[in-house]
Design a binder for these strands. Structure first.
Lengths: 128, 128
DNA sequence: TTCCATGCAAACAATTTGCAGCAGT
DNA sequence: ACTGCTGCAAATTGTTTGCATGGAA
């Protein structure tokens, strides 16, 4: 593994957040200023292929990369678009039990509204 | 509603399949040869905003538009990438019951392998 | 010297947008 | 004449790819 690869991987691993390729690029650039965005993409995708990290496609905005490899789902705030991991107990089994098709994997995102945005909206509504 | 809008809408409605913007464009072009792809996008998106149709974002390839507005999920064949509607009974309730966040909507795609591709793969494997 | 990862830039795919002109009212 | 939808083309966004090169083994 090269220096750049170690750097990229540790940026993703160290962040409990979900990072876009560009965010990873910005962080890596702090220690390796000559890094190219293309190289970041190349390595992130390679890591994802090797199952070291996971690439998550979002309906809006760029894809994000995350280090949490355990099967889990994503809660997306419809207001700020921020994403949070969450897990639903036995979901995959539930789906398996209610489907006749052979299931390889499931991909679930739940649209929700995060506490912060909800509070902000409530405040706004109470004002007038 | 304009002629083009009626045409686009009926193309989506008449197809039980899922169509990409370009596929809709190709179909509309048969009756209205001067139509522009941009106009197709504009109208499809407007219809989606008005909840006349639904736009579905796929991890790979272009978005698709579908007329089935009932809450349902998608089965994606990992081999041919074709998509099929399917419904899981009580899924949203299950998730609601197992989650503490306010749930607006649920988006589930299941990776699977369709009968056709499975048959083809079996045949191939048996050959040698 | 060999080889592969890199930086760089160009290509690419999907989609959106600005704008002038035309159609319908 | 006014309005707004359309065609067209250019711009945008996110991502991938080809290629020459430079650094590590």
């Amino acid at each position: 593994m090269t220096k750049l690869q170690r750097e990229i991987l540790s940026v993703v691993k160290d962040s409990n957040d979900h990072l876009t390729a560009d965010e990873v690029y910005q962080k890596v650039k702090k220690t390796m200023p000559t890094v190219a965005l293309g190289s970041v993409y190349r390595n992130l995708n390679q890591f994802a292929r090797d199952s070291l990290i996971r690439r998550v496609v979002r309906p809006q905005g760029p894809d994000i990369y995350e280090s949490n490899m355990a099967p889990h789902n994503h809660l997306v705030c419809v207001h700020c678009l921020r994403m949070k991991d969450f897990e639903i107990n036995g979901l995959e089994d539930y789906i398996r039990d209610h489907s006749s098709s052979p299931i390889i994997s499931v991909n679930l995102t739940v649209n929700s509204i995060c506490p912060k945005c909800e509070a902000a909206l409530n405040k706004k509504n109470n004002k007038h």
